[in-house]
């Protein structure tokens, strides 16, 4: 039973990580590429680490909850690194694809 839970969590995690990387390759411009890794990969890691937590809690003596730490850390840092990357992209005036709406909402740097 527990083996099933671990397997399903692992597969969900692997799928989300793969989707994030596919988004990284498939999307046409930088701003759209950013969506895959910040969201899908983070959730994939959370699911995979939950699987690891269940696995180590059942195979080894005692409860093992320290995998939560990595999930927590990634959940906290993913938006910040995404923010830093999109800020540097706007600073470098990277082109977004033509059908992007509301491009005039971007203000110039000081």
């Amino acid at each position: 039973m527990i083996e099933w839970i671990i397997s399903i969590l692992l597969l969900i995690g692997g799928c989300f990580i793969l989707v994030g990387s596919i988004g990284l390759v498939k999307m046409p411009d930088f701003f759209m590429r950013l969506h895959g890794p910040t969201k899908a990969t983070t959730l994939g890691m959370a699911s995979l680490l939950t699987a690891a937590m269940v696995f180590f809690s059942t195979t080894q003596a005692g409860l093992s909850a320290k995998e939560i730490l990595i999930s927590l850390f990634l959940l906290l840092t993913a938006p910040i690194s995404a923010y830093m990357m999109i800020k540097s992209a706007i600073h470098h005036k990277l082109a977004s694809i033509e059908r992007t709406k509301g491009k005039d909402n971007i203000e110039d740097d000081v």
């Binding site: 950013l34 910040t38 969201k39 993913a78 938006p79 995404a82 923010y83 999109i86 706007i90």
Partner: peptide
Amino acid sequence: VSLTPGTVSAE
């Protein structure tokens, strides 16, 4: 906003 509905906060 970055983590939720298909949006990334930029500035």
